[in-house]
Design a protein around this nucleic acid. Structure first.
Length: 381
DNA sequence: AAATCGGGGTT
DNA sequence: AACCCAGATTT
């Protein structure tokens, strides 16, 4: 099979050589035209049927979808999205809701700062502190919206001719243009973004951007891409040079740091003690059982410190109930669960944290991270 | 440029 | 067990 990639990528055939910056990727007008036509053609026949694609003109609906989709797979998002839009169908309903309820709909989805920023941005817009964004630049002024998300919203909902370069597009473009620099580097991302910017058409920019994503999800997958089914195979420089298996180049992620914690679940009658996590860190604003880093201490000493912090007096000895392992990108947690029934239900004093004694039903309505939700399975008695 | 911020599906 | 996902923000 004779590839067009070599000829079409040749700088000498580029229509606008002057636009290429230092180290920029030259794309001929013919090449750009080919990519646009073939990718959109493929998309017309292969586009996934996704909930937010039924509201393409609704910037709010696109916005919510794009925030949820940050670093999160489509299949994971769908159910969260449907529930969220059912409860908050527009920016006004979201703006007047308490953050706890927003977090409640977000629990299990991760990166909870996204929910805070979404809520905060909704309030900014509902209060009309700023005008409703009319382009990508306007969207990017809101907290939680970066270059990618702004481009996605503006291209899909507003029809603006801007790219939306996510991890998918970086991978596909690195292969298509045979870029073997580390796609983690700022310089590489800048070059690929510049290429994406030149490729996005004036007509149907939103469909075009989404077509990259569908292609990346269905054909140009991270491992073993289906090049024999790819509509851009003839334009793919990586394929022509036999480099697909090596592309994209990316430095390996570091291993997560192991963290061991003791969890002390205090119970009184049918209630358990929970506390709300402080703003800003992990699981910001979510509820959890009292827990403490073990570090180099023994479990019994860590538990003793935890009980001293809670200042709930002496009681019986906590009983060990099991371990919840919870893996994050940068941390590998193991929560060692201990259970202790108290004769009295007093609230800890002077901890600068919000504590509550709650029934199981009440706990169900509070936002709790996945790890501490799993702790519940160890407390059946 | 590197670290931080969740959780889960694929390979 | 490694990889990576419709990234943004802070350091």
């Amino acid at each position: 099979m004779r590839s067009e990639a070599g000829r079409l990528l040749n700088p000498s055939t580029s229509e606008r050589p002057g636009t290429a910056a230092e180290g920029g990727i030259e794309l001929s007008a013919d090449y750009i035209r080919s990519i646009r036509r073939k990718l959109l053609n493929w998309y017309d026949r292969n586009a996934r049927d996704l909930p937010w694609r039924h509201h393409s003109d609704d910037a709010y609906a696109q916005w919510v979808a794009e925030i949820m989709l940050q670093q999160t797979r489509v299949d994971t998002v769908i159910d969260f999205y449907l529930r969220f839009l059912d409860r908050f169908p527009n920016v006004e309903s979201l703006a007047i809701a308490p953050l706890d309820e927003v977090l409640g709909l977000w629990q299990g989805l991760g990166y909870y700062r996204r929910a805070e920023n979404l809520h905060r941005s909704a309030q900014i817009l509902a209060r009309k502190d700023i005008d409703w964004p009319k382009d990508a630049r306007g969207w990017q002024a809101l907290p939680g919206i970066g270059v990618y998300t702004a481009g996605a919203i503006a291209s899909v909902a507003l029809g603006e001719q801007v790219p939306a370069v996510d991890g998918n597009v970086l991978r596909v473009l690195a292969r298509l243009l045979c870029i073997d620099d580390d796609i983690g580097w700022t310089t590489t991302r800048r070059r690929l973004s510049a290429a994406a910017d030149r490729l996005v058409p004036k007509a149907r920019p939103g469909d075009f951007n989404q077509a990259w994503m569908d292609l990346g999800a269905a054909v140009c997958t991270p491992k073993t891409p289906a090049c024999d089914q790819c509509p851009l195979a003839r334009e793919c420089a990586g394929l022509a040079k036999g480099m697909i298996a090596q592309l994209p180049v990316r430095t390996a992620a570091k291993k997560p740091i192991a963290v061991e914690r003791v969890v002390l679940v205090l119970a009184h009658r049918n209630r358990v003690l929970v506390r709300q996590r402080p703003r800003g860190g992990r699981w910001s604003g979510l509820w959890e059982f009292s827990n403490l880093d073990v570090g180099s201490k023994s479990h019994s000493l860590a538990l003793k410190e935890l009980r001293a912090d809670l200042a709930l007096g002496e009681g019986l000895r906590p009983t060990f109930r099991g371990v919840v392992k919870h893996l994050l990108t940068h941390r590998a947690y193991s929560f060692h669960i201990y259970h202790l029934r108290l004769p009295r239900a007093a609230l800890p004093r002077g901890q600068g944290q919000t504590y509550r004694w709650v029934t199981e039903a009440q706990l169900a309505s509070l936002p709790v991270g996945v790890a501490h939700r799993r702790v519940l399975h160890f407390l059946t008695t």
